[in-house]
């Protein structure tokens, strides 16, 4: 097996009494897209900042390319932060020229429509700005690409284009670590690491994360009444179209709650989103208890 590009072993980061990242083990290998999933405050960004060398670990170890994060390791990283890290009063081309000068590389190639753009970035749509951030991060041909919520706030078409870029990069042997809220994006990853309360609560590829988990699906014409009944029975159904999906309960439990109502109750494989909610809710309950 190839050596990991980025690795954390028992990495912990405390802020006073608050443990933001708790004994996290994680690795990213060449050609692999690792998705870091977690609700807000789960510790994803803190872990990324530790891997980038922006935050020191309180305990445990963080390594990039087999060494502690340093100025030398930064040459091999491409990073797109949530805030994009671009100068919005410069044009796209000027931003790329600056990054190229810092990395001693050729400036990234912009799409034709952007190459001649003379407006500062602040006046371009967010999707375009994100595209420029990707070009900048990849221009010096890094070995590891770190992306923090890379498609936040962009339309589905642009999101698909950006994921094409990510896929092309990993196909070329680049390791990619990406944090995301979007489950459809998570499904694009080779491997997923789910974080909750600062800890890794699930890890594996999509089938491994989903496992054999099933949810109960209710089909009824009177979904509003069914919804009310189930909420009274301390269930938390999700309304998807005109069907109700209930995680963490069995078919007999749901049938009991809906007794006397004309409806169809059956089991179906859980989606990643449902599995994610289950895993993270269980982690939160376990921490509280």
């Amino acid at each position: 097996m190839t050596e990991p590009l980025a690795e954390s072993r028992g990495a912990t980061r405390r802020f006073g009494d608050h443990v933001a990242v708790d004994r996290v083990n994680l690795s990213v290998r060449p050609g692999e897209v690792v998705g870091l999933l977690g609700a807000n405050g789960a510790g994803k960004t803190t872990l990324l900042r530790m891997l980038l060398g922006l935050l020191p670990a309180s305990s445990g170890e963080v390594r990039l390319f087999g060494a502690a994060p340093s100025r030398a390791t930064r040459q091999r990283i491409g990073y797109v932060p949530q805030s994009l890290g671009l100068y919005d009063d410069l044009t796209a081309r000027e931003n790329l020229r600056f990054a190229a000068a810092v990395f001693h590389s050729a400036p990234g190639t912009l799409p034709e429509s952007l190459a001649a753009e003379t407006l500062p970035l602040a006046r371009l749509p967010l999707g375009t700005q994100r595209r420029v951030a990707f070009v900048q991060a990849l221009a010096h041909h890094p070995d590891l690409l770190i992306l923090d919520e890379p498609t936040s706030g962009v339309d589905p078409l642009m999101r698909a284009r950006l994921w094409e870029v990510i896929r092309d990069a990993s196909d070329g042997g680049m390791g990619v670590l990406v944090t995301t809220h979007y489950m459809e994006e998570a499904e694009e990853c080779d491997r997923l690491v789910v974080m909750a309360e600062g800890r890794v609560v699930a890890e594996g590829d999509l089938p491994q994360i989903l496992g054999e988990e099933q949810v109960v699906v209710v089909e009824t014409d009177d979904w509003a009444a069914a919804l009310q009944r189930m909420e009274e029975g301390a269930m938390a159904p999700a309304l998807v179209g005109r069907t109700l999906r209930i995680a963490g309960h069995t078919v007999p439990e749901v049938e009991h709650a809906l007794v006397g109502m004309p409806c169809t109750v059956r089991e179906a494989p859980a989606t990643l989103e449902e599995r994610f909610v289950q895993i993270t809710s269980a982690a939160s309950r376990s921490k509280r208890s």
Binding site: R71, R74, P81, S83, L86, Y87, V102
Partner: peptide, 14 residues
């Protein structure tokens, strides 16, 4: 404020 200082911090600059 713009977040570019963080980007500078991960670039190979001292």
């Amino acid at each position: 404020q713009a977040g570019t200082l963080e980007q500078l911090a991960v670039m190979p600059l001292s």
